[in-house]
Amino acid sequence: MTEHAIPPEHEYLRPNKKFPTVWCPGCGIGVVLGAIIRAVGRLKLDKNQVALVSGIGCSGRMAVYVDFDALHTTHGRALAFATGLKMVRPEMKVIVVMGDGDALAIGGNHFIHAARRNIDLTAIVINNFIYGMTGGQLSPTTRRGDRATTATYGHVEAPLDAARIAEAAGAAFVARSTVYHAVETERLVAQAIEKKGFALVEVLSNCHTYYGRLNKQPTPTQMLRWFRDSTIPVGAQKNGGEEKIVRGVLVDRELPEFTEEYQKLIARAQGKKTDEPLRAATGR
């Protein structure tokens, strides 16, 4: 049997779940799902030791398809649920999948504080500039001038930059890509999973159903072309050139990681120095 007799995509998908997915045909979220399971496969992770935690919205449904322990939480709170899980199961790789509204509007505070703690979570924000599941309302990343079902006359607010917030709050790793750049996304997700600390991968994704139709890009192809043409790899931006969205690793730095720091705190509280893993919380 060759190494990939079963493609990793299939190995990490639930065998007992019916496809197709709940997502619209051509939706970018499926590309992100593919990138995640391929990244997990590339890292040869034990799927019993991977958890996927998601919030509410189209992206929240990803938890159904992966063959990991999966927790589909309340709107905006995925990182907070994941924080509790990670603290009692520090040996697990915990991947948190959120949408832009989920992570940056209702969950914005948790996003900031999870980054500030630099807790070892892989945060994937699928940014499609809009609330897809509820029908195309404006989100915190909706750009000035964009239309949404709650921005009939064009949006007059500035968008939020998830990557810069994560950097300012103290994340160890920050990256950005798009669903057009699926291979790059897979590589960045793998890097993020491997990084000890809070690791954000923002993936620009197409909601042609709402964002595209309301903003003159009604097909997936048009939106993918937009991602191709409006983004540029880190370092490739030319002075005086057209302002483009930067892709790639934006921040990669060594900072104290929360579960490790907490382990040291426990050792101090117990008056000893120990490398014993943090397990007593679950009575194991």
Binding site: F81, L85, K86, R89, T282
Partner: peptide
């Protein structure tokens, strides 16, 4: 939320 997450982890 963290409490529920930790309980899901078995604590």
């Amino acid at each position: 939320a963290a409490v529920i997450g930790a309980s899901v982890g078995g604590a």
